[in-house]
Each structure stands twice: as structure tokens, then as C-alpha cells.
Amino acid sequence: MEAATLPKSLGSAIRRRRQALKLSQEDFADHIDMHRAYYSAIERGERNLTLVTLHKVSLGLGVAPSKLLAESGF
């Protein structure tokens, strides 16, 4: 996988997990104390996540960061 496609693939994996929890972007962003617009950009693959942000999102989803990376094909 090319590094340029990782944010989009990771964002898609995050979106699938959030939707499986039946949470809106706004509700989930509030749950993890993140601005809705920033979180939305993560799901669209427009943000290159830091490890801290990836950890924060993965905790909110109840999954290990490594699992999200694996689901994104990385």
C-alpha cells in the first residue's frame, strides 16, 4: 500500500467501526472529546493521524490501534 492511500483506508476502517456501533459522527466525536469537523476529516482521509489521535479514536471504538491499521490494509 502506498503511504498516500493510508489516511483514506484508515478513515474507512474507522467509519465502518463507528457505524457498527450505531453512532453518528457528531455523537462519536463528542464521546472522544474531539471536534466534529476534525473527526469528519479523519473519516474522509483528509487528516494524517498522529499516534496520540489514533489511540484516542481506537479507545473510543473499543479496538486496538493495530486492529484498525490491519483493517485498513496496512
Rank of each mutant, 00 (worst) to 15 (best):
H31Y: 05
A20P: 02
F28D: 01
T50I: 10
E43T: 02
A3P: 00
L51A: 12
R47W: 06
T53A: 01
A13N: 05
P7Q: 12
L69S: 07
Q25H: 03
N48H: 15
D33I: 00
S58T: 01
R16C: 13
L21Y: 02
A64Q: 04
V57K: 10
S66D: 09
D27N: 10
A64H: 07
L54I: 04
R18Q: 10
E71C: 11
R47L: 07
L54W: 02
V63Q: 07
R15H: 12
V63I: 14
F28N: 00
G62K: 01
L6F: 07
T5Q: 14
S40N: 09
S72T: 07
K67G: 11
Q19C: 07
L69P: 00
R44H: 06
V52T: 12
A3W: 10
G73H: 06
V52L: 10
G73Q: 06
R44Q: 09
K56Q: 08
R17P: 00
A37K: 15
Y38F: 11
A3C: 11
R18T: 12
T53D: 06
F74H: 10
S9T: 05
Q19H: 09
P65T: 05
A13H: 11
L49R: 01
E26I: 03
I32T: 09
S66C: 10
Y39H: 06
T50P: 03
G11T: 04
L51T: 15
G11R: 04
E43K: 03
V57D: 09
K56L: 11
I32Y: 00
N48R: 12
R16I: 08
K8Y: 15
A4Q: 15
M1I: 05
E2I: 15
I42A: 00
V57P: 08
K22N: 12
T53N: 08
D33Y: 10
Q25D: 08
E43S: 07
Q25M: 04
D33N: 09
S66F: 07
A29Y: 03
D33T: 01
L10E: 03
L69M: 09
L59D: 09
T5V: 15
S24Y: 02
Q19V: 13
H35K: 08
D30V: 06
K56E: 02
R16P: 13
V63Y: 03
D33A: 05
P65L: 09
L51N: 15
E46C: 06
S40R: 06
I32W: 02
G45N: 04
A37N: 13
R18E: 07
K8R: 15
L59W: 03
T50V: 10
L10T: 01
N48Q: 14
A3R: 04
L51H: 14
G11D: 04
S24P: 12
R16Q: 12
L6D: 11
D33H: 14
A13C: 14
L68K: 01
L68Q: 05
G45L: 03
S12C: 12
N48V: 10
K56C: 09
